[in-house]
């Protein structure tokens, strides 16, 4: 096997090395729930804007601590502000949680495949979120709400651990007040004062108001939740080709070179994170793949 000479022609462009982060300054840190927070960033230096598509992610670098992938949770219509929402669980996110307005983060991105919202034109749109999985779906929600007339029914089914863990609560309440959005929330464990649903998010699917024969579904949450959600949506009549899920794997490079995010034959960083369910259905049921 010989290498195509085109591959070997030197093309190094030092102005844009995909391994080097850009400096971004924190404008605002908002603690959403006990263990989740949202940071708003603006680019410094040469970059003025940061354009991305809903569902894409960035690599976020905390000085000297490490770098991790986090989905973008802001409004893609406003590329001057970059928004990330995450849970403080690992070394990097815990260090990030302590950062303040004015601090600098390194950003590489945006990476990965977006939610294919354009394919939902003219059909009902169902978002199903589990826990922090609501964050990567929010940019898609913003876009759908901004062009509401393009879609049929728009439904969000959101499952979270307890009423205290409801993310973006104010925003969900505002959306719920509109007459053209259906927002359903369920919790694993209720407490005094909760009058909403209790149980797993898949329980909401049979009763949700959408036409399964003309629906695009965007699902994000823990892998097991996405698997059962896709099965339940399919049971209701949604075509597997019309269901999209966002996968999570260990990532070090985000550009398809480090090998960590392999999921069967695909690289989650560049072939995903958003996949058509019908294309990865078989792999989702393989243990430890």
């Amino acid at each position: 096997m010989a290498t195509d000479p085109e591959l070997l022609s030197l093309k190094v462009d030092y102005k844009w090395n995909p391994m080097l982060p850009w400096p971004f300054q924190i404008r605002r840190v908002k603690h959403e729930t006990e263990d989740t927070f949202t940071i708003e960033l603006q680019p410094l230096g040469a970059l003025e804007e940061f354009a991305y598509q809903p569902g894409q992610f960035n690599m976020l670098y905390v000085y000297g601590v490490g770098e991790i992938p986090i989905s973008i949770s802001g409004d893609p219509a406003n590329p001057r502000v970059l928004v990330h929402t995450t849970r403080a669980v690992g070394t990097v996110t815990k260090a990030m949680d302590k950062m303040k307005r004015g601090d600098i983060l390194g950003i590489r991105g945006p990476y990965g495949t977006p939610w294919p919202i354009d394919q939902a034109n003219g059909s009902d749109v169902v978002f199903v979120a589990g826990g922090i999985g609501l964050a990567p779906l929010r940019p898609a929600l913003y876009e759908v709400v901004a062009h509401r007339e393009l879609y049929g029914k728009v439904v969000l089914l959101y499952g979270t651990r307890t009423p205290l863990d409801v993310l973006f609560r104010q925003e969900l309440e505002n959306w719920r007040a509109r007459f053209d959005l259906e927002i359903y929330v369920t919790v694993d464990r209720a407490m005094t004062g909760w009058r909403g649903n209790v149980g797993v998010v898949t329980n909401l699917i049979p009763r949700a108001p959408f036409d399964p024969r003309n629906t695009m579904a965007f699902v994000c949450g823990p892998e097991i939740m996405m698997r059962f959600t896709a099965m339940e949506l399919h049971k209701r009549g949604v075509d597997n080709e019309h269901i999209f899920v966002s996968m999570e794997r260990n990532m070090k490079c985000a550009i398809g070179l480090c090998g960590h995010c392999q999921f069967g034959s695909v690289f989650v960083c560049k072939d995903g994170p958003v996949f058509r369910y019908s294309e990865i259905k078989e792999m989702l049921v393989k243990w430890e793949i």
Partner: peptide
């Protein structure tokens, strides 16, 4: 104030 990342410089 801040850090010098490689891409800071134009």
């Amino acid at each position: 104030k801040g850090i010098d990342l490689p891409n800071t410089k134009k």
